[in-house]
Simulated scan of single mutants.
Amino acid sequence: MTQNRTLHLLNGQSMYDYFKRTHFLDGELLIPFNEAMCYGDTNDDIFSPQFSQVRAKVHHVTLEQYTEITLKPLKLFLDKNFTHLSLWFDVDMFCQINVLTILGWLDQTDYKGEIELHIVGDKYELMDHLSLKAEGYYSIYKKVLIRKEMPKHILPAFLKSGIELYLNYLSQNSELIRYINKFKNLSEEMLVSKLIVEFTHYGLGDRQYLEMLNRVGRSKI
């Protein structure tokens, strides 16, 4: 392991590109987490070959493409080639389910180090910061993402909020599905744009919303 090596794990390519473009954390080691764990099936052996096969299918890409896009940038993380780990994520559902997956893997692989979690806003400005340990998160991951059940005790509070949104957002009575049905006469492009603006607390993008429109049986207009 490299001495005094801080690894900054960012939620996605957009945040990574922004930090690089603005020279934020200049000289530091930054890598993106290119996943959307709040959508689609998963596997209880996080980042295993079986996990990768399931997630590649969710994203409609080959296993090779998934490896190149998601796993290859995570190599230093998966090899635990760091002495300090720093996470940078938003409070929205999208980001928090990604956080849960990362903490779940660290717990699954018995990582005992301190983790710095930085919470950023819509424009990537720092909003909050806390330290935590990856203890108990693997069981939460399995309960939430595999069994779709709400755990009794979840910290921090914004992770709990993200999980609550995740467990409800694809149900027939969720605010997202009701909104889609209310504006079902709009074009897909316009409806997706409205969803992104109206429901920022979910953090979903156009790809996830298009999948949702197909899932609820809404034909293209």
Results as ranks from 00 to 15, higher is better:
Gln3Gly: 08
His8Ser: 11
Leu9Trp: 03
Gln13Ser: 15
Ser14Trp: 00
His23Asn: 14
Glu28Arg: 11
Glu28Cys: 11
Glu28Trp: 01
Leu29Pro: 00
Ile31Asp: 02
Ile31Thr: 15
Met37Ile: 06
Asp41Gly: 07
Asp45Ala: 10
Phe47Gln: 05
Ser48Glu: 03
Ser48Met: 03
Ser48Gly: 09
Pro49Met: 00
Val54Ala: 04
Arg55Thr: 01
Ala56His: 01
Ala56Trp: 00
Val58Cys: 08
His60Met: 06
His60Val: 10
Thr67Leu: 01
Glu68Tyr: 01
Leu71Gly: 03
Leu71Asn: 05
Pro73Glu: 06
Phe77Ile: 00
Leu78Ala: 11
Asn81Ser: 15
Leu87Met: 06
Trp88Gly: 09
Phe89Arg: 03
Val91Thr: 14
Leu100Glu: 04
Leu100Gln: 02
Trp105Gly: 09
Trp105Ala: 11
Trp105Arg: 14
Gln108Pro: 05
Glu114Cys: 08
Ile115His: 07
Ile119His: 05
Asp122Asn: 13
Asp122Gln: 13
Lys123Phe: 12
Lys123Leu: 13
Glu125Gly: 10
Leu126Ile: 12
Met127Lys: 15
His129Val: 07
Ser131Val: 11
Leu132Val: 06
Ala134Thr: 04
Glu135His: 12
Gly136Thr: 07
Tyr137Glu: 02
Ser139Phe: 01
Ser139Leu: 04
Ser139Val: 04
Ile140Gly: 07
Tyr141Asn: 02
Lys142Leu: 02
Leu145Cys: 14
Arg147Gln: 15
Glu149Met: 12
His153Ser: 15
Ile154Arg: 01
Leu155Arg: 14
Pro156Val: 06
Pro156Ala: 06
Ala157Phe: 03
Leu159Lys: 09
Leu165Pro: 02
Tyr169His: 13
Tyr169Leu: 04
Gln172Phe: 09
Glu175Cys: 08
Glu175Lys: 15
Arg178His: 11
Asn185Gln: 14
Asn185Lys: 15
Leu186Asn: 11
Leu186Trp: 05
Glu189Gln: 11
Glu189Cys: 05
Glu189Ala: 11
Met190Gln: 14
Leu191Val: 00
Leu195Pro: 07
Ile196Gly: 10
Thr200Gly: 06
Leu204Lys: 10
Arg218Met: 13
